[in-house]
Design a protein around this nucleic acid. Structure first.
Lengths: 329, 329
DNA sequence: ACCCGTAACTTTCACGTGTAAGTAACGAGG
DNA sequence: CCTCGTTACTTACACGTGAAAGTTACGGGT
């Protein structure tokens, strides 16, 4: 009753040729000579039948699918992540493949998803466990981890220090997160921040981890800020793990009667969509999501033996100056 | 050199049985009698070889893949969207399938993505064009649109009116968005807002559309608020398209010297992660992403002939009272 | 002694595609 | 007139899986 989807056999029948001819025409093979008349008949038949080739049989025949999987392990959204995803989608599409993103819930889901999806290459923004990497290896799916691609994860935090130092700050605080899924980003950033302070011969910075999710409250940040203010040599500037934390920090400072940037400088990271909308507008670090996406894809293509090994990625980050940092009074 | 991935034939060879036996064991078919000893041999061989069945051949043989596609046409992130995606991922996984989300860039990409992905069912949060729906129909892929699923898109906005009326407000303003990708949500909400005002016999509400993306500035909101304030009977409460707009509105009001909630009540929509963190904390509408996800999947299962037609979805929305709305002074 | 049912398998086919290998027709060169 | 190369196709197979249909071997009933 429901007519089945049309196949290349249908086209062959309609055009009065063999299936092989159809295949040669549709794949525009240069090493096969097909007369112009036949070619047009096939093309017309394909269009008439709204032919879309069957992905499964293509993948089966070709030995690999045209899918690229991006594994997203609960990374909270930011402009950067969206832009990476969008740019990757475009790049992958240019190669005739399609990027799909999979939000994984549990660790055990990976096997069944691989069995269902069978991507030709997998990418991950976060670090996969050894078991998972091993699994991908046994099913012969190359894995590209952004960790390998971005050894400069500490650079943004170092830039924060540099910028604050350039504006005369010496006693710095760092607000990071204790959210487990973010540690892959948080750990190198905190490390970079502390290391940069040492290299600039600053006093050891204060570091505090804010709770994640709904437990992050203005009050918790106020308490932290107050603790730092009540020290003999109070912090004059605080850098944050991301813009969201920085926005909360701005609110907390305001409620404590601390004037930003005069009493306290605040610096974010991400240049998220709302950064220009906070009051004062947030001075932050802009990363290069497009560059990272391009490098991620270049690495994937290398793994697919379609391109030479790309040069190591150097994180491109720069300060976006707005209004939340100035010279200390 | 690189040993190919192991297949059910490898298992059969290792276990010393035929491929059919392997298939019967691995799919645990009840209508086939397999001796316990053979069963164990096969299972052991499969484990030893790290066997993962080939998705392409399964899909080819079975006539449909085990993939569910969620089409995301540039909808900006919110807690709700993430929760819908996560809950859908879980539900779909429970059926042995996998949910993948595809961020589409251009309208023409859909064909090639379908050809590469071949989902057994497609879901879309936004409205697809007629051409696209037709395309899905010709390739026999059922489409579930959240439009069909959520005819109560106007309910949240009506709730905003109801809550503001209950707090004594009569002259209302509505801030919506002109972002094209959001009109699918914006239009019914604005409609619901205006209609509800009429039903409550309120004076006609003021409606303004804010620009999307980077053009949304505090200044643009301030101008709008000022325009409304300079009218003979100024607006006493403004409801917003979402929490993000409401947060900007809060900042704008503060800069105009308008005290929220006493001089102006502000109401958001979404109960996004930052809603409790604004000052004053945002009174907003909480939707039910899990319920929507469940209904979306129930509809998809109905289309897959695996479940009866679900009851029409009634949008479950409720007010979350915080501090940005009170009785007018 | 023969038939029949059942347990425990194996043989065989189909799914839709890409492509290597085969074939028929035709014109040119000897 | 025969061969050879080229054009324009067609035939046939492989990919890995699921499952219908077929094949043994064996035990119990008549």
């Amino acid at each position: 009753m429901a007519t089945p989807r049309s196949t290349s056999t249908d086209i062959a029948r309609l055009a009065g040729v063999s299936r092989a001819t159809v295949s040669y025409v549709l794949n525009a093979r240069a090493d096969q000579s097909i007369s112009e008349a036949t070619r047009n008949r096939v093309l017309a038949a394909a269009r008439q039948l709204n032919y879309v080739p069957n992905a499964a049989s293509r993948a089966l025949r070709g030995g690999q699918s045209r899918l690229v999987m991006l594994i997203n392990s609960g990374i909270p959204w930011s402009t950067n992540i969206t832009e990476i995803e969008d740019e990757l989608t475009r790049l992958v599409a240019d190669s005739g493949r399609s990027l799909v993103v999979w939000r994984r819930q549990g660790p055990e889901d990976l096997v069944s998803t691989l069995a269902n999806l069978e991507p030709c290459v997998a990418m991950s923004m976060s670090l996969l466990s050894d078991d998972e990497s091993a699994l991908l290896a046994t099913v012969k799916i190359p894995l590209v981890e952004s960790d390998l691609v971005a050894p400069g994860s500490d650079i943004p935090a170092r830039l924060q220090v540099e910028h604050l130092v350039a504006h005369g700050h010496e006693r710095l605080g760092y607000l990071t997160t204790s959210e487990p899924t973010l540690q892959r980003f948080a750990t190198p950033r905190t490390g970079g921040f502390v290391a940069a302070c040492e290299e600039f011969n600053l006093p050891e910075p204060r570091v505090a981890a804010l709770p994640g999710g709904l437990e992050l409250t203005v009050e918790s940040v106020k308490e932290q800020l107050q603790a730092w203010q009540s020290e003999p040599h109070p912090v004059t500037a605080v850098a944050c793990f991301n813009d969201f934390h920085a926005a909360v920090c701005l609110t907390a400072a305001a409620e404590l009667g601390l004037w930003v940037p005069d009493d306290l400088a605040v610096m974010g990271l991400d240049d998220d969509i709302f950064a220009p909308l906070t009051r004062p507008a947030l001075t932050t670090i802009k990363l290069d999501p497009h560059g990272l996406a391009r490098h991620l894809w270049a690495t994937a293509q290398y793994r697919l033996h379609e391109a030479p090994e790309p040069h190591p990625y150097v994180m491109d980050a720069r300060v976006v100056e707005r209004a939340s940092v100035s010279e200390p009074v």
